[in-house]
Amino acid sequence: MKKLILLAVILATANLASAQRYFSKTAHVHFYSHTSAEDIKADNYKSEIVLDKATGAIQFSSLIKSFEFEKALMQEHFNENYMESDKFPKATFAGKGDFSKVDFSKDGTYTVPVTGKLTMHGTTKDITTNATFKVSGGKINGETKFYINPKDYNVTIPDLVKGQISDKIEVTVKANLQPLTK
């Protein structure tokens, strides 16, 4: 019995040691809304991701007020009227990726199917996408793209500007990942 416990402990520790976690606190989220009337884009260069290659768990978060627009007025409207960032300051994604075919120590390009839940503006929806990881000379760059409809997240767009905001907003995420050592 004692031996069994010892074995279990050893296995658990070995498992822990091989658990590889990676992070970035300078992940870039870009969104782009295209309509014939107007193109709107914004960038957040201070989003965070932590991913655990062993379990596939992916945690991503962005603060809404950290999205920068070209025009101050647009940024105000985004925060006050649409995202209500005083009430809902953070957007999060919690999901899983299949990293079974990925070797972060070997150069190459890996495609990882990702599914999870995106929460913003107080609403949670399922997201399914593919993420691409490019490994080159020890550097790991992750990237993904997906589309969201503001309506799905209960973001109300007044009739007056309906033609200016797309119902298919392109979201691009880029992150330069580093091993997490703590």
Partner: peptide
């Protein structure tokens, strides 16, 4: 500055 909220790694983000 203005407080944007709390992040795990960055801590409190100010803008």
């Amino acid at each position: 500055g203005y407080c944007n909220g709390y992040m795990m790694l960055d801590g409190v983000q100010m803008s």
